[in-house]
Simulated assay, not measured.
Amino acid sequence: MLLKLYTTVFALLAIWTGGNALKQDNLAPSQQTFWTGSQPEISVDQKGIIHIVYGTKAGRERDLYYLSSSDGGKSYSKPLLLGSFSQMGLGMGRGPQITTTMEYTVVTVGDHHGDLFAMRLSAENNQWSSPVKINDADTTAKEALSGLSAGKGNDVYTVWLDTRLGNNNLYGALSKDGGLTWGKNQLIYQGEQNGICDCCKPSVAISRNGDLHVMFRNKVSGARNMYLTSSKDYGGHFDKPQKIGTGDFMIDGCPMDGGDLSADATGKVTTVFRRQMEIYVAEPSKPEIKLGSGRTPVILQTSQGPAIAWEQQGTIQFRSPND
């Protein structure tokens, strides 16, 4: 299952970084062509079923598609159109998010009108719910940059960039029923110097003990560094964000690259992120380790440790848990 999952990640990243699905005759035997689209996201449920969501665009049209595999990636279902979302964010981390809970597959999607929506697939009856809006202030999530993670039972938490305070700041919301209803939006962090980095995707991971970990790119005194904040009460309170790594990313602008994070069974957090055009891996309060050159790193927590992949000049670089 682990190796099959790795090859699926390779195929997804090839689509993600290139923007479109690869042609079948250019694929290795372990790869699959799904459909023409961009920004795919993947989740594997407790039964080993692979769930994938992605977007397509033709002119001003934006469509959301879903497909799955119940045989470890050997074959996939025909893509299912979940809906059309005007001005759906696609590209540079903007795109649908997906996670799986005990009973549901949950998808979120944001648009440049400023709203973030959720829908869920029931494992019991294989039916999708209608989209529901997550942000409780209208048109405040215009960057369409968000992250999503599942916890125990049917708990789901999402984070996003939100402008209701005048600049982009970090907000979150909790669902206890697999994305059907959402609690009051929570201000996770308000940037001390006119908000946080405006175009970098935030990410969230829920550890097995229920701790919430959120990573985002801050902007402080000309530096665009990654920061981590955590909550032990499912978002009721977050601790003071701490900078990840020891170096500084000095840039007058947004790198449009938010990194990723994961938490293992013991609760240990691992982050991956880009600084300049270099990729780093780091644990909180520890020095970062350079992995190589590139952008858009992602991390997948496995039973053997974190697997990391990133794009480097049109090719996918991979670091296995055993490296």
Rank of each mutant, 00 (worst) to 15 (best):
Leu3Thr: 01
Ala11His: 08
Ala11Tyr: 13
Ala14Met: 03
Asn20His: 06
Lys23Val: 01
Lys23Tyr: 12
Ala28Phe: 07
Ala28Ile: 02
Thr36Asp: 14
Gln39Lys: 04
Glu41Cys: 01
Ser43Ile: 03
Lys47Cys: 01
Thr56Trp: 13
Asp63Gln: 12
Tyr65Trp: 15
Ser68Phe: 13
Gly83Met: 10
Ser84Glu: 08
Phe85Tyr: 12
Gln87Glu: 11
Gly91Ser: 09
Pro96Val: 06
Thr100Val: 10
Thr105Phe: 13
Thr105Trp: 14
Gly110Ala: 08
Ala118Gly: 07
Ala118Phe: 02
Met119Ile: 03
Met119Lys: 13
Glu124Val: 06
Glu124Leu: 06
Val132Pro: 02
Thr139Ser: 15
Thr140Cys: 12
Glu143Asp: 07
Ser146Arg: 06
Ser149Lys: 06
Asn154Thr: 09
Asp155Pro: 00
Val159Gln: 11
Leu161Met: 11
Thr163Met: 15
Ser175Thr: 11
Trp182His: 09
Gly183Asn: 15
Lys184Asn: 14
Gln186Cys: 09
Gly195Glu: 10
Ile196Gly: 08
Pro202His: 13
Val204Lys: 03
Ala205Asn: 04
Leu212Gln: 07
Leu212Glu: 11
Leu212Gly: 10
Met215Gly: 05
Phe216Lys: 04
Phe216Gly: 01
Phe216Cys: 04
Gly222Gln: 03
Tyr227Trp: 05
Tyr234Gln: 15
Tyr234Asp: 02
Phe238Met: 07
Pro241Trp: 04
Pro241Tyr: 10
Gly245Ile: 09
Met250Gly: 00
Ile251His: 02
Cys254Asp: 11
Leu261Thr: 14
Ala263Asn: 05
Arg274Thr: 14
Gln276Asn: 13
Met277Cys: 01
Tyr280Phe: 15
Ala282Lys: 11
Ile289Trp: 00
Ile299Ala: 04
Gln301Pro: 00
Gln304Trp: 00
Gly305Glu: 03
Thr315Gln: 14
Ser320Asn: 08
Ser320Ile: 04
Asn322Glu: 14
Asp323Cys: 07
